[in-house]
Design a protein around this nucleic acid. Structure first.
Lengths: 346, 346
DNA sequence: CAGAAATATACAATCGATTGTACATTTTTT
DNA sequence: AAAAAATGTACAATCGATTGTATATTTCTG
């Protein structure tokens, strides 16, 4: 069973394949009648365009490559939803890959993207990314790149769409302080990543601004898995039983902390208030529901995709004008922090 | 900035591009010395193979297309993890797309896969899929297809990797009965899909086997979102306040039901036992932790990918030999059903 | 109706890699 | 050292579509 090509259509209609090509692309140089004949014959033969050939000739693939650490994380999947929405509207295909937090895989994916001639790349880097050669190569090849959320600290000149992590952290910690916490710990993320640095800084600065000490002992960095939250909470409480608040740089670790607190009979938020980051679906289901910071993933995805497409289109006219788009996060108050309860009394 | 091609390498070394091609592919017809020269020059020029050209010539892409309803659902993301593991080992690339439960998108994705000449397709169909022309076209084009979990009821001759939903449902309902439930409701999924039919059948059959009536009024079909669970629980209890058990065809709806029960002050599992399906991360976090049925997504992904690759490789030798691989699910007992508690007493 | 303008179609090169066949060179065998 | 075998390289066609240029046909204009 052979696949039909434009040449077969051409032969069947006794016209040239170039005319068939133009007809299929609705080019004005082809007569309406001819177009109709071509369309019908194409349908009849079950013609499927070969994008490999088309893209080879045009030297672009009409495809956007997306790399995220893990598609299963809710935040990233909302980002992808946003990306697909815009890409679809603009007629681009989207190819999704996951780095699984490994630079090695990140590099492989990039190679693959280049070899398949994607028109642009959207990426959220892996934990351990400290080498960005593979990303700079992209630019050398004229493939625009936009970072989403997780971006490298060391790259100054690049496109990025991020949220104001610093502000989000400030609001979260401010909220904890306002609800009466005096000794607030921080579950920090890998300090390779700017986002986690900013959240930490927001935490420290807000404490200081409120005349509270920012003690290094109360700051523990990890990969913020659920078990990390569980264990860190345990270790911290052992040494500092008077901790009455936790600002976790993500929701998963916060959930782990709640799990530990429940296990030892401590009440959230009565004994300890907890605030997470991301507004993961878990945060709504956990008991008590978790106060957290919404990151507007879909919005980020949309904005990033728009910026990328803009770059792809203007690529040839002018040199890159790097842009940074910063969105504002939003604190979502639920019951894991005292503020909500106090307010309820009113 | 132009991308290097094998022709540039050839010119630089004063040899033919065919030799360069063979050298890069480590063909035995090329002398070791020449290969080295080629490799070095390739690196020097920053050569990146153009897979569009290569694939066009070879008429295959070394790529497997995957379609799932939503990558953000935990179950599907574990499936994808399994797929990627096997594909990677066998040297295939994986392209992931989401249908978002829309047949329209499913068709578009398929067209795109065909146009990009994927070597095979793995798919889990959308809710509303009732037209399978686009899938049968694949076969016509000689592109092997393996269904994963969600498969069309109407297609007899096809490859599929599924779990024994019937058995899983039987075990779940059996568990509810053993823990003392007398009036068990079922949150059913869209009956277009075999998997939900099987779960319903397992539910009904198990009730009958245990001399309990299977009442149509206690069976409510929906898309099993969290709100569905919430609302269905409310409506059911209104008419049948003596319901003491629920078997939900997924975890999300079960979580919604728990939420409603909590709201009206009913205790789980003391007043009503609840069992879900899928072993979603939510099920562990919700309060009380949800008894559910594990579907071994990663295992399914692996098996399906292996089956597909086998099909791709043997494609030319023999005609398709359709296979069905059925995995066994496993009941995970947690605290949302009475069984666990009773056992604790011992 | 001649010639210009507009429209429609054909020709041929091209994108970058692969691959069967032919030719040239080296090595081995007798 | 001549013939046979093995090795290395070059030539040229090919995959399927796109596109600039040239040619043919139709329509319009005065």
């Amino acid at each position: 069973m052979k696949k039909a090509t434009i040449h077969e259509i051409a032969k069947a209609l006794n016209i040239d394949s170039s005319t068939v090509s133009r007809a299929l692309n609705n080019n004005s140089r082809v007569a309406k009648k001819t177009k109709e004949k071509v369309f019908n014959k194409a349908k009849e033969l079950g013609y499927k365009p070969n994008l490999l050939a088309s893209n080879l000739r045009k030297n672009r693939s009409n495809t956007i490559g997306v790399v995220v650490p893990r598609i299963s994380r809710y935040f990233f999947s909302t980002i992808i939803a946003g990306i697909e929405e815009v890409a679809f509207k603009e007629g681009f295909n989207v190819v999704i890959s996951q780095s699984l937090e490994q630079v090695k895989r990140e590099k492989k994916i990039m190679d693959n993207f280049v070899s398949n001639r994607v028109d642009g790349v959207l990426m959220s880097i892996a934990w351990e990314s400290n080498d960005f050669q593979h990303l700079q190569n992209l630019e050398g090849l004229g493939i625009p790149l936009v970072f989403l959320d997780r971006h490298p600290a060391s790259l100054e000149s690049c496109n990025k769409v991020i949220i104001d992590d610093y502000k989000g952290a400030c609001e979260a910690v401010d909220h904890l302080i306002k609800s009466g916490c005096k000794k607030i710990a921080h579950f920090a993320g890998p300090q390779f990543l700017e986002i986690y640095k900013s959240r930490l800084k927001g935490y420290s600065d807000t404490l200081k601004k409120n005349k509270l000490k920012s003690e290094p002992k109360l700051i523990v960095a990890s990969h913020l898995m659920k078990d990390d939250g569980f264990n860190i909470m345990r270790d911290l409480l052992e040494k500092h039983p008077d901790i009455d608040g936790v600002f976790s740089a993500n929701d998963e670790a916060a959930v782990g902390a709640i799990k530990f607190l429940k296990k030892i009979g401590k009440k959230v938020p009565e004994d300890i208030s907890i605030v997470g980051f991301s507004n993961d679906p878990l945060s709504e289901v956990v008991e008590p529901p978790l106060t957290t910071v919404d990151q507007f993933g879909a919005e980020m995805g949309k904005k990033a995709c728009e910026l990328l497409i803009q770059n792809i289109k203007h690529q040839k006219d002018d040199p890159f004008q790097y842009q940074t788009i910063i969105l504002s996060p939003k604190l979502i108050e639920r019951e894991s922090s005292r503020g909500v309860i106090e307010r309820r009394i009113n």
